[in-house]
């Protein structure tokens, strides 16, 4: 069974723009996102800032209540639960944050921070909690003395280890890692990635791994979904999606991601255009203003998700057999040449 099923998840934010109240604006942060995570699998969620990937993570955890859709943990729909039932389920899903400096309470010793959830959920008290904390510290590669120190005495990498230990205190089934290694230096990032994959193997954990870094996702995840302005545009196994991306956005994202190899140096993508705001997304396919293959159809009709290759899904008219004639009929207006190695 899948550890997590997400179906048609939606989260809109309502704000006002301008002075003295201003005019109401709806930001469609997550606009109908569906995916599933198999048990023991690391699933990547990739996209640029403002695409809604972090909102998906928080809505799955119900840290912010979703507006519509279904989020099911082990087949149990979280949207149907009352607050008490939800609180009882919380230990099964935990989160690791990007910034190891703000994710730990500065006034709380590491030992106390790790023991607190164990005591609150009645998983152990006194010496037993202390033993669990000592084991956790060892598991994340920190000395036992760390329990008696405050977070500010540790480096960024060590703090991230503490945050990982805290996420493990309640023995979860699913961990949502939101840019968990993005703030770290390369050599520390590699250490933390290694630690996370060891823990995943040992405990049979599943991960929702949110990142903007395609390299990190390729190393850590088995499958992934690419998001653009609140929607998933492509999903599938990591290798094929990165090696032969189907959606034009994935192609551009992949081409723009730097590769540490000067012999593979190519003409830098001189792709023009900005990422539009999610409060005012373009009609039709959200990506059409930046897409070199955009046609009139793309400007008006939202593309359906199809499965052109088994296990790979893409939301683009180019890959929808039902739209093949319509796409041929409407020539791209600005046929820019897209470079892709």
């Amino acid at each position: 069974m899948n550890v997590l099923d997400v179906d048609g998840l939606k989260k809109f934010f309502h704000t006002r723009v301008g002075a003295f109240g201003g005019k109401p604006v709806t930001v469609r942060a997550v606009d109908g996102v569906s995916f599933h995570i198999e048990t023991g699998e690391a699933f990547g969620l990739v996209g640029e800032s403002g695409c809604g990937k972090s909102t998906v993570g928080r809505a799955v955890l119900h840290l912010i209540p979703p507006d519509a859709g279904r989020v099911a943990l082990h087949g149990q729909d979280l949207m149907q639960l009352d607050p008490a039932e939800l609180r009882a389920l919380r230990p099964s899903m935990q989160m690791i944050f990007q910034d190891p400096y703000s994710s730990l309470n500065p006034k709380q010793k590491v030992g106390a921070a790790l023991a607190e959830p164990i005591r609150v959920h009645g998983r152990g008290s006194g010496p037993e909690a202390e033993r669990i904390v000592a084991d956790l510290l060892q598991e994340v590669g920190l000395p036992a003395e760390a329990a008696n120190r405050y977070p500010h005495e540790f480096s960024g990498g060590q703090r991230q280890r503490i945050a990982i230990a805290r996420a493990l205190t309640l023995d979860p089934d699913l961990i949502i890692a939101d840019e968990a290694v993005s703030a770290l230096d390369v050599s520390i990032q590699a250490q933390i990635l290694k630690l996370l994959s060891e823990i995943m193997q040992r405990r049979g954990l599943s991960f929702l791994f949110i990142s903007h870094d395609l390299g990190v996702v390729r190393v850590f995840c088995k499958r992934l979904a690419v998001m653009y302005l609140g929607r998933i545009v492509e999903s599938g196994p990591v290798g094929p999606v990165f090696d032969t991306p189907l959606h034009p956005y994935t192609q551009i994202l992949r081409a723009a991601s730097p590769i540490p190899d000067p012999s593979a140096r190519t003409e830098l993508v001189r792709l023009s255009g900005e990422i539009p705001s999610a409060s005012n997304p373009p009609p039709g396919c959200h990506f059409h203003p930046r897409c070199p293959f955009a046609t009139d159809l793309c400007r008006t009709v939202t593309p359906k998700t199809t499965e052109p290759v088994t296990g790979r899904h893409v939301a683009c008219h180019l890959h929808d057999p039902a739209q093949a004639d319509a796409m041929r009929a409407t020539k791209p207006l600005a046929a820019k040449e897209l470079y892709f190695p």
């Binding site: 928080r58 955890l61 840290l63 609180r87 009882a88 919380r90 230990p91 899903m93 935990q94 989160m95 944050f97 990007q98 910034d99 703000s102 994710s103 730990l104 309470n105 500065p106 006034k107 709380q108 607190e116 959830p117 609150v120 959920h121 945050a163 805290r166 205190t169 309640l170």
Partner: peptide, 25 residues
Amino acid sequence: RAYIEACRAMGFSHARIILFHIVPN
């Protein structure tokens, strides 16, 4: 701050979050 979100993810009550995690800070 993220540690308050972490507290909520761990199912802590509002009273606990306020007394032990907001007030000391």
